[in-house]
Design a protein around this nucleic acid. Structure first.
Lengths: 240, 240
DNA sequence: TCCTTAAAGGTCATATTGACTAAAACGGGG
DNA sequence: CCCCGTTTTAGTCAATATGACCTTTAAGGA
């Protein structure tokens, strides 16, 4: 591990960046936060927000700072988890840049404001770039693909779906999160049964909310359980 | 993302290392590969194998090279996956060193040979250091803890357990992997039923193997499925 | 008042699970 | 050569979970 040979010609210092794949659900669609790059390389191309990690920061702190600087979003209240490191020596034409990718989920977030480091930041529907591997700068499409698979899987066995909802939410809203992220329809009745039978997933607030039309829905907040048991499996996982 | 300001005083180059948490099952116990550090800091202390990622390598290639150099193990035939990045600015007293942790599993591997970069490499039972947070150098105990949780979880919904077994194996051997990694007893009959009913998990070779005593056991090899559906959940996950 | 809509609650056949019992197939000792 | 311990393999059964439905409740609007 971390040893001598810091002066070896074989080894070189690297630039370390943090990039973020931030998702929200708006208008029944899964959206990801993108920025338009303001400098070369990939000038003008869409990319995930992110930037250099500074001297005294943890990786996570760097990710949160970049999110604030590039999109004006305070990520301290979002669900933020590390996705992984991307370090192919050819992923950045300027040299070796290792990026630590973070994954964040939030409720319907305010429109991002373009910061100093990027022309604009904006929400973009995931479904409209899910096919072209060069839709985003660098290897950001790989990162996005990995991030998508991770949240789809995490919905199954954690209560992370509640991170897409506000402080309180109806079961319909929670179900919509699953439907949008998984891209499949769920039976409302069976979904309700599963969620309410999973200890600690949600707890009723006692209040109600009126939908546009129809019977009022009970409101819930996050429970104290993070891991779901049994998990809530998607059909694809069962079909096989 | 990766932009200008490469010359800013706020940003500095980092050293990037790859560390490995490699596990195997020997004598009914889960073992992790450790090395004795040959240089400061933490001279003489046990640590996970690893070292600096070189100029033209991918992160994965660096991890495999370090594994070969420090323990004489050819990792190209092991199951190797990235665990995550550890980059707290205080994790290494020499300055900012970001390490990319890798997780590897292998069948009962040959005794490691000490390489040039470390005094020795050796297998050590996980159960004997699972409590002391300073048993290993740097933040390697954190990495080990995360690696353990990851393989325990991955046994549930992937066929990764077969990576602990040789080319062909009995269902008892496979069950022992689950029992050792999870630290709990599994009913042989129910385990067999679940594994055989999960399409693509294993496929019979047609051969048999004689245990020390008892009825001969049929041999299996890995199936073509990686994701298990339905997953094989541990009791802890269900109890809750 | 009646209609539409969505929430909430219930039914039922089927599948899965966990705990258990029993049969089959070996080697070894008398 | 037959009993014994051991391990694999097979089977039973009650409890639980699942998926596909159906029904009732509670709102707003025509």
């Amino acid at each position: 591990m971390d040893d001598w040979l810091i002066d070896s010609t074989e080894v070189e210092a690297s630039w370390v960046t943090a990039d973020l794949a931030i998702f929200t659900v708006r208008g029944g669609r899964l959206m990801v936060l993108l920025v338009e790059r303001g400098v070369e390389p990939y000038l003008g191309h869409p990319a995930l927000p992110g930037g250099y990690v500074q001297k005294a920061e943890t990786l996570r702190e760097g990710a949160l700072r970049e999110l604030w600087e590039e999109a004006g979003i305070d990520g301290s209240r979002l669900h933020l988890e590390q996705l992984g490191a991307y370090g192919d020596p050819r992923r950045d034409p300027r040299g070796r840049v290792v990026t630590i990718a973070y994954l964040a989920l939030g409720p319907d977030l305010p429109a991002p404001v373009g910061g100093t480091d990027a022309r604009h930041a904006y929400w973009f529907p995931v479904s409209e770039l899910a096919d072209d591997p060069h839709a985003l700068a660098f290897d950001h499409m790989d990162i996005l693909t990995d991030a998508l698979e991770q949240i789809r899987r995490k919905l199954e066995y954690t209560a992370v779906a509640t991170a897409f909802c506000g402080e309180s939410f109806t079961l319909s809203e929670l179900r919509t999160v699953y439907e949008v992220v998984w891209g499949e329809h769920l039976d409302p009745s069976n979904f309700r049964r599963k969620v309410l039978n999973t200890a600690g997933f949600v707890q009723p607030t006692g209040d109600q909310r009126l939908p546009a039309t129809g019977r009022p829905a009970a409101l819930y907040r996050r429970g104290n359980a993070w891991l779901l048991s049994p998990p809530l499996l998607r059909a694809a996982g069962k079909a096989k």
